[in-house]
Amino acid sequence: MNWLTDNKIPLGAWMENFVDWLVDAAAAFFDLISITLETMIVSMVDAIEWMHPLAVIGVILGLVWFLHRSLGLTIFIAAALLLIINMGYWVETLQTLVLVITATTISVLIGVPIGIAAAHRPWLYTILRPILDLMQTIPTFVYLIPTLILFGLGYVPGLISTIIFAIAAPIRLTYLGISEVPNELREAGLAFGCTKSKLLYKVELPSAMPNIMAGITQCIMLSLSMVVIAALVGADGLGKPVVRALNTVNISQGFEAGIAIVLVAIMLDRICKSPTARKES
């Protein structure tokens, strides 16, 4: 078997050469993306930090009440946010929320149209499926290496890695939802004279909306898990105190930061669930 190991296929070297080529050929392009995204995220964080924490909590609670009309959920989110402030992780929580919302928004804006196109073109999903499998099975730390080289330290490599990791969920579930629209609904729409665009917006998307919303919720959870890991490449947020606690074996700090992450995950999950799904769960 020595011949097999002695004649190693240089997959890693090929990838390294490809990344080096990207750095040399498109350095200005990646710098532009990095500066634009960094400025956008920092501006959003600074704008929210400028507001008083109680004012931010009031806005969030108003949104929760408008969406769900649930007193219990509103009280829970108020208590969770006040606990986060009490533990001293308010700024880190805001940074994490901005990263999660930004990554989820970009993933959904890209992933949902791709999922719709794949549902209407089976050959496209045949091409996308192994790529999506690869994106979801490669260890998350691997995404940080090329993005760190291309974009440098800070928010941007963490954001790009998060998008790559989370975008598969809205693509897959949008494809699933559109594919499972009953043929009877499509035939009824065509019988009433729907064009392809009207059939999509009036029939297919409403029917597939539960799957699409499930994809968005899953995308948010994946983004949150990856944003924490992105602290290893300099992205601010709740991941930093976790990494700091790990390096210093600080049980107290690690537990408190972990509780803050859990609370953020529960709040995002509860807010993004439809009232019907929340009552059933």
Rank of each mutant, 00 (worst) to 15 (best):
K202D: 15
K202R: 15
V203R: 06
V203F: 02
E204Q: 13
P206Y: 11
S207G: 05
A208Q: 07
M209T: 13
M209D: 00
M209Q: 08
M209W: 12
M209I: 12
P210Y: 12
N211H: 12
I212T: 06
M213Q: 08
M213C: 07
I216D: 03
I216Q: 01
I216Y: 06
T217H: 10
T217Y: 04
C219M: 08
M221I: 14
L224D: 02
S225T: 10
S225F: 06
S225V: 09
S225N: 09
M226E: 07
M226W: 07
V227D: 00
V228M: 06
I229A: 07
I229M: 05
I229F: 02
A230Y: 02
A230P: 01
L232T: 08
L232D: 05
L232A: 14
L232R: 05
L232F: 13
V233Q: 07
G234T: 03
A235C: 11
D236K: 14
L238W: 03
L238T: 07
L238Y: 05
G239I: 03
G239M: 10
K240T: 15
K240H: 08
K240G: 00
P241M: 01
P241Y: 04
P241W: 01
P241F: 09
V242F: 09
V242Y: 07
V243F: 15
R244N: 11
A245M: 00
L246K: 06
L246C: 01
N247T: 06
T248H: 13
T248S: 15
T248Q: 15
V249F: 14
V249S: 14
N250Q: 12
I251F: 07
S252C: 02
Q253Y: 04
Q253M: 13
G254N: 03
G254K: 05
G254A: 04
G254F: 08
F255W: 00
F255K: 00
E256K: 14
G258A: 13
G258K: 05
I259W: 08
I259R: 12
A260L: 11
A260R: 09
V262L: 01
V262A: 10
L263C: 04
L263M: 11
L263H: 06
V264C: 05
V264G: 06
V264F: 03
A265K: 08
A265L: 03
I266F: 10
I266G: 07
M267T: 14
M267K: 09
D269S: 12
D269Y: 09
D269L: 03
R270H: 12
I271C: 11
I271G: 08
C272D: 01
K273H: 03
K273N: 11
